[in-house]
């Protein structure tokens, strides 16, 4: 972390960048927040980079691209896919970013820790492969690898896909099959599938956190925020509307979603939103050839490009 701070201060001092987009210490060890820094003092005093810095900063670069001068942005390996995708869609300006690819050995999910039954957390410290957890009700510990975000269990690898320089070591933390959950659902009967999604989506409180955090949801005005749209918009007035938001969103990010995992990270109701997107990714891989959004900044999206190898619409019938 100190290396990042030192380098950021250099880049601020020599005028390469006007500000730094990173994470600021929280008032608890597990609640850092995304933040902009403009001075060396601010960096020294408030900057943090650690296990709880899961937030993907790419999307903040849409606004930062409009600011004077360059912004130094810190991206983890998986965040760089989102950034590439945003360049590809002309939503961020590459010239306005100075990217430091920061090392990542998997990010922690405070919800996972709490769900394991830990209450009243006061402090969490890393101790090799373990987390020492201090609580109001005594101390406990947990394996670092058991407290990871879902997306880290299906890590896309330790390589940064775009950067100006790299600081720190990364690790591939994947220990689960990326499409295993999707395959399980594919095997369900239509009734079971419906019941599964009904159960999950009926928890939705339409807070829009999944949409607002999503780097692929970068429309200036979302159709669901339009006052002219003849739907119930902010509320789930009936069980169809409840699902419509999610279905439309999933279709709209299909082929562009990098599977960055932010939607599932932020959902207060723990809805496994990544399953929708992964189903699309899996189908795209099968029908249009292996494709990872954001892996290549110049890639043509499989759903926006036509090739003779594309599947025919009749595929719908064939698959039943």
């Amino acid at each position: 972390m100190q290396k990042i701070v030192e380098r950021a201060k250099e880049l601020l001092a020599d005028g390469t960048v006007n500000r730094v987009l990173g994470w600021k210490k929280g008032d608890m060890c597990f609640n850092p927040e995304p933040a902009f820094f403009e001075t060396a003092e601010d960096l020294d005093e408030n900057f943090v980079y650690g296990g709880f810095c899961g937030a993907n900063l790419s999307k903040y670069m849409i606004d930062a691209s409009k600011l004077e001068g360059k912004t130094l942005v810190l991206l983890k390996p998986c965040d760089t896919y989102s950034f590439n995708q945003l360049i590809n869609e002309h939503r961020v300006d590459r010239e306005k970013a100075y990217i430091i690819g920061v090392g990542c050995k998997g990010k922690l999910n405070i919800e996972t820790i709490k769900q394991s039954g830990v209450k009243g957390i006061l402090n969490i410290t890393e101790n090799g492969d373990m987390l020492n957890i201090e609580t109001l009700y005594g101390n406990t510990e947990m394996k670092y690898s058991d407290a990871l975000l879902e997306r880290c269990h299906v890590c896309k690898g330790k390589e940064h896909k775009i950067y100006d320089e790299l600081i720190g070591e990364s690790q591939d933390t994947s220990d689960r099959e990326r499409f295993a959950e999707v395959e399980k659902i594919e095997k369900m009967s239509p009734e079971e599938k419906f019941a599964f999604f009904q159960k999950e989506l009926s928890k939705c409180i339409r807070c829009n956190a999944c949409r607002n955090v999503c780097p692929a949801c970068s429309c200036r005005k979302c159709v669901f925020d339009s006052t002219k749209f003849d739907s119930s918009q902010k509320a789930n007035t009936d069980s169809f509307e409840e699902k419509m938001f999610h279905i439309i969103r999933a279709f709209h990010v299909a082929g562009r979603c990098t599977d960055c995992g932010e939607c599932s990270r932020v959902c207060p109701q723990g809805i496994p939103l990544h399953l929708f997107n992964r189903k699309f990714i899996k189908d795209i891989n099968e029908f249009y050839g292996e494709y990872q959004a954001g892996a290549d900044v110049d890639a043509k999206g499989p759903l926006t490009e036509y090739t003779f190898g594309d599947c025919e619409p009749s595929i719908v019938k064939e698959r039943g």
Binding site: Y60, I205, C207, N208, A209, Q233, V266, P268
Partner: peptide
Amino acid sequence: KPCLACGTCTFSCPTCQCYDIK
């Protein structure tokens, strides 16, 4: 600055009382 403009804080809050009529 980092605020996503989502409604998580307001929709989970026991005292937030604003509503829309549509």
